[in-house]
Design a protein around this nucleic acid. Structure first.
Lengths: 182, 182
DNA sequence: TAGTACATGTAAACAGTTACATGATTAT
DNA sequence: ATAATCATGTAACTGTTTACATGTACTA
């Protein structure tokens, strides 16, 4: 599973389940997301496998925290995962499934509006990612440099999708006009 | 769930589970994939919900087929799904998780090779999608037109990823050279 | 006093994968 | 003979989501 290894990777520094959830939500993790209900049991499982250790820690407000630390075994498990080469997984893009079959609605205006909404979504998310400023590659350590190129993936992906939306809107509009005056 | 609705959409014309699996594998379905072990029970479930009907049909070779047909209720369920607007789902890109944490291996050559492998993958898949020739938009019916713009998404996404790989390889190489001669 | 952020967890349901079982037909 | 393709299905497992349960401390 990937979540196991992502948690192992995120635990380069000790953290609690709650901390890790925030890391997923902070958008730098545009490539994966996880709920607390999945994170807590996964951390426990990793601890029983000896890849993490945990100790309770006080908290300023609210209940006590449980902070997890990666073990040597955890680190070598992580390195093994990294050495496998790129894991491609499966793409799941429900909006493309919808778009491909939107001809069933028999309404090009509906298709046009659908793509307008998609464009809006990609543009907003692209702006969100671009706002994460990481500075000049020359001043970075290796961790920051790897974060930078990963973030650039997200930004260029959004730009390419917006461009595809614009191109598609043109094509839909042309088709619409051809239907009006046949 | 999306698979329910994708199967409903694919059943614009009657087909068997086996036929539908081939449609997923034919790459035009670059946005979703499913195994037979998931397709067969899902079709049964859709039939008990009254969204599909099935009848057995002979086969030239091998055991008899079971061909599913969409009902009126099935079509309106589909239209309801399409009318919801774009469903964004969650991105799961394990290779980006690996790349962001590949600094742990402390080896820029490993990072470089990783991106070379990614580039190879995206380029190959992009060529595979480009080979699906659909012809001129003006001669198409609405179904083919929607298939075209969906396919163009896949092609431009691959091109953008290859461009990102090339840009990243440059940046990694620059960093490598800076480390050699500090 | 109501809501939000902190903080951890469990239970049940749903989604998806891997492995297995069966058996016919066609090509090598 | 052996493998590939056709064709359908089940069982066990793994992964993910939604809903629930608990309780503190601070802010509006």
């Amino acid at each position: 599973m990937s979540l196991d290894h992502i948690l192992l990777a995120l635990l380069a520094k000790p953290a609690s389940g709650y901390d890790l959830k925030k890391e997923f939500d902070q958008g730098a993790r545009h490539y994966w997301a996880a709920e607390l209900a999945q994170i807590y049991p996964t951390l426990k499982k990793l601890e029983t496998r000896g890849l993490l250790t945990s100790n309770p820690a006080g908290s300023d407000k609210g209940p006590p925290r449980r902070v997890y630390t990666r073990t040597k075994a955890g680190r070598s498990e992580l390195l093994g995962w990294l050495k496998q080469g790129p894991l491609m997984g499966k793409q799941r893009l429900p909006y493309l499934a919808q778009l491909e079959h939107l001809y069933e609605a028999d309404d090009l205006d509906a298709t046009y509006n659908f793509v307008v909404q998609l464009r809006q979504h990609f543009a907003t998310f692209g702006r969100f990612l671009s706002d994460v400023q990481l500075g000049d590659p020359e001043d970075m350590n290796d961790a920051q440099f790897h974060e930078l190129i990963t973030l650039q993936y997200g930004i260029t992906a959004c730009q390419a999708r917006v461009a595809w939306c614009d191109e598609s809107l043109d094509q839909i509009d042309n088709r619409r006009k051809r239907k009006e005056t046949p």
